[in-house]
């Protein structure tokens, strides 16, 4: 190819490539809506905190607009300008308001709350905005609960301080109870005062003494019984336990061996099938080899050999 023609071809290729790239970019940008006409709207807030240029405006969870400009007004308020596309212009209607959502997790965004069927607002209209702060809302809801808890704690503190005083009713009651129990333990006259009869009091005391003796005897019997049980434990139960443990070990061993034997029996069963199959194969092989041998034999045999020759 001549050099001039080659230059022409290369130039043509570069131009074609450039046009193709440009067309592709144009199509992509057009599809993204870059060349669509946008309509501006405004709203004002006292502070620009939580707002930024490019912040999305959502309707029913979809991004329908974006903040294009933030400006400080002469009266100290902040004027925001956002734009929507032709397709989403219908959502900015009368009675429509904006709500700034600051979720506990995630970035803040603006939600558009509109009533369906209302007339769309003309471009450059100003909308109202409300703030919704999840953290502050939660704190404000918790405040009364915290107040109540503080009150309960102070009440409990007052109660414990009142009880802990020496002249408190609780302390007096406990002292009286102590005095009564001491007298009851040391002097039978109190018991008499309860029963109303001195003989009955003595009978009760005698009964209590007898009970004490009985309890002592029961204790002795229990001690002896304990000794006997200990002896039984030493002489009979421990050896028996040892024997049982040994028996258990033997039985476990037997069980293991039986399990192994079971596996072996199953394996042998499968081998048996294999052997049968092998036997059949060998039998067939032998029959075939016999047939070949017979053919070879028949080559050498004549009709004269057909009769069985007696010894």
């Amino acid at each position: 190819m001549p050099y001039s023609k080659m230059k022409f071809a290369v130039g043509l290729f570069v131009i074609t490539l450039f046009l193709a790239i440009a067309s592709f970019l144009y199509l992509v940008l057009q599809e993204k809506g870059t060349f669509d006409q946008r309509y501006d709207y405004h709203f004002s807030t006292s502070s620009a905190n939580s707002f930024s240029i490019g912040m999305p405006l959502k309707f029913s969870g979809f991004n329908v607009g974006v903040i294009d400009a933030i400006a400080l007004s002469d009266d100290g308020s902040v004027k925001m300008t956002f734009s929507v596309s032709e397709a989403n212009k219908k959502w900015i209607s009368e009675d429509c308001y904006l709500l700034l959502k600051k979720p506990l997790i995630g970035s803040p965004h603006i939600e558009i709350h509109a009533t369906i069927g209302k007339k769309p607002l003309p471009p450059s209209s100003t909308l109202d905005i409300k703030m919704s702060d999840d953290i502050n809302d939660m704190i404000s809801k918790l405040e009364p609960v915290v107040d109540n808890i503080i009150k309960i704690i102070s009440s409990v503190q007052k109660m414990t301080s009142a009880i802990s005083k020496e002249d408190s009713d609780l302390f007096s009651t406990l002292k009286n109870l102590n005095t009564f129990s001491a007298k009851l333990a040391n002097n039978d006259s109190l018991l008499t005062s309860i029963t109303g009869d001195e003989a009955s009091t003595k009978n009760i005391i005698n009964s209590l003494n007898t009970t004490t003796q009985i309890m002592q005897e029961v204790h002795q019997i229990t001690t002896q019984l304990n000794t006997i049980v200990a002896n039984i434990n030493e002489e009979m139960l421990k050896p028996s336990a040892t024997l049982i443990q040994k028996l258990n070990l033997i039985m476990e061993d037997v069980q293991l061996k039986l399990e192994t034997l079971d596996a072996t029996v199953k394996a042998v069963g499968s081998y048996d099938e294999d052997l049968l199959h092998l036997k059949e194969q060998i039998s067939v092989g032998l029959q075939k080899s016999n047939q070949i041998m017979d053919k070879v034999d028949s080559l050498m045999q004549t009709q004269e050999n057909s009769e069985v020759k007696l010894p």
Binding site: K295, S298, V308, K309
Partner: peptide
């Protein structure tokens, strides 16, 4: 040209008996 004789059983019996002896 080889052909198994029709009375091959007889030949086989005779042959087997010779082998037996």
């Amino acid at each position: 040209s080889f052909k198994t004789p029709d009375n091959s059983w007889q030949l086989k019996s005779s042959s087997a008996f010779e082998s037996y002896k």
